[in-house]
Design a protein around this nucleic acid. Structure first.
Lengths: 170, 170
DNA sequence: GTAGACGTTGACGTGCGCGTCAACGCCAGT
DNA sequence: ACTGGCGTTGACGCGCACGTCAACGTCTAC
């Protein structure tokens, strides 16, 4: 099997395969006389393993134990201890990540509620507004909390367009 | 106030300030005769706003409404509708992100459990293999502990070192 | 023999938020 | 005069997982 067919069958691109090879992650079985890469069915299984882990947010390096486990002849990529360790580390990372995101969520929700309340007080300004609530200072103080604070990025972990998910290209 | 002082007072770097200016996010009040940037106290407040939002994982572009709200003279950066919308959008993003991560967490946990069970069946292979409950001393203990160490790898979503958090530099 | 589909390597681009030089100008102190 | 410390602009680097050319070789079909 040549590179294009493997890429098609796995729903990825030749560029990705060459990239994986450059990392030593998925070297072809051999080269044919004309220099073409030659792959077998086992490479398709490794590729599927890589891609399913990537869909879960694993980095390419984290997929390496799984791929090598398959290459070692195991029926499943997670039949080896190295793969299990990656699973466990990822679980811990996910837990930490979720915890931080929920902290951040709570803080943002509190800020929004406070700000909405404040703007609501100014806008209707009904006559029974003599005791101006929320005289407390600017949000900067409230926000300037512990520097151990967490930052949650955009949904970088969540799913994003893989070539197979997005089959329209210019 | 010149750039170095502002950076020090806000706990950031001159490089960051020049970068913000290049985005049009935080232009200086003026230039002195020799070309030095000149800032006032209000710029310090804007900078603090930017940095506190960044700690929550907001991108720089997302801080723009807050900064412009401050520049418009409001006491608080989130006193304007644009800022509130950013809050709301961020909340939605956070919720989506958490949901996705929890899905992934469940899938990974399931994979791990299945793989550990399979390897547990192959390895001891004791003659009394009919009741498959977790045997003592097996890796089952690691599975139970959610947040044991969780410090090694950096997650992709969460925070990364800000200059102020990491006051050792080469 | 020639078009077109496939393959090869190499190099640069992307997004984000800066870090890290390089090469220079300006100013105060000794 | 010289040193040191601040300022200025400009350009490249990084990490990650490739996309996107460019310039070329190879194979198949007509």
């Amino acid at each position: 099997m040549r590179i294009g067919e493997l890429a098609d069958r796995a729903g990825t691109t030749t560029r990705a395969l060459r990239y994986y090879e450059s990392l030593g992650l998925l070297p072809p079985a051999a080269r044919t006389g004309n220099g073409y890469r030659s792959y077998g069915e086992e490479h398709l299984r490794m590729l599927e393993q890589i891609r399913s882990l990537q869909d879960f947010g694993f980095g390419l390096e984290e997929t390496r134990p799984f791929v090598e486990c398959l290459r070692a002849g195991h029926a499943s990529g997670d039949a080896c201890e190295g793969s299990l360790e990656v699973y466990r580390r990822k679980l811990a990372e996910l837990d930490a990540c979720v915890a931080r995101l929920q902290e951040v969520r709570a803080s943002v929700a509190a800020q929004l509620a406070r700000a909405e309340l404040a703007s609501g007080l100014r806008e209707p300004m009904c006559e029974l507004g003599r005791d101006t609530a929320a005289p407390a200072g600017s949000p900067a103080e409230a926000l300037a909390g512990p520097s151990g604070g967490a930052a949650a990025g955009e949904p970088s972990v969540p799913t994003r367009g893989h070539p197979r998910d997005d089959p329209d290209h210019p």
